[in-house]
Structure formats: structure tokens, C-alpha cells
């Protein structure tokens, strides 16, 4: 049962990533692309956690945590840049 659940989740997250990529390429505006990038970060983090379950190791946890933090900081920096034309005020 678990093996099918993990495979299903892999497929669902890959489809989700493809949809996000479509939005990233299509746009139409910059905030849309930033939002798509943010969603890509979160989805790939989940993919890493799933990979950890698949291989039965907890080693991917640190990578997932790092992706979460860097994704958030990247989104905030890009949104700030759109707002002010500058990141550090």
C-alpha cells in the first residue's frame, strides 16, 4: 500500500511542477513568475521529503529545510525589488 502511495505522490508532485513551469514560462507579468518560482521551491521540497521516505533515510531533511529557507528569502527579495526597485533600503 505505502509503495503505491509514494509512487502516486511522486507523479502528483511532478505534474504539479510541470504546471508551475508552464506558469513560469507563460507569465504574463513578473509577479506571476515569482509566485511560480516560490511554488516550485515548495513542491521540490516535498519531492525531497518523499525521496527520503523512498530510500528510508532522514539525510534529505537538512536539504529540504535549506530549500524552504532560501525559497522564502528569494521570494521576499524579488518582491521587494519589484516594490521599490531596490532590495536593501
Amino acid at each position: 500500500m505505502l509503495i503505491y502511495a509514494v509512487q502516486f505522490a511522486f507523479i502528483a508532485f511532478c505534474v504539479a511542477l510541470l504546471l508551475n513551469l508552464w506558469r513560469l514560462f507563460r507569465g504574463p507579468d513578473l509577479p506571476d513568475r515569482i509566485l511560480a518560482l516560490d511554488t516550485i521551491y515548495i513542491n521540490s521540497l516535498a519531492l525531497l521529503v518523499l525521496f527520503g521516505i523512498w530510500h528510508g533515510t532522514a539525510f534529505y531533511f537538512e536539504a529540504a529545510l535549506l530549500i524552504a529557507m532560501l525559497g522564502f528569502i528569494g521570494t521576499v527579495a524579488a518582491a521587494k525589488f519589484l516594490l521599490r526597485g531596490d532590495i536593501v533600503e
Binding site: A9, A12, A16, L19, N20, L35, A36, T39, N43, A46
Partner: peptide, 12 residues
Amino acid sequence: ALFALIGSVGLA
């Protein structure tokens, strides 16, 4: 996985 997929469908 279903909720994440729904979120991405909504984004698209």
C-alpha cells in the same frame, strides 16, 4: 499530494 496538485492547477 492531491492538495499540492490542486494548488498548482489553480496557479495554472
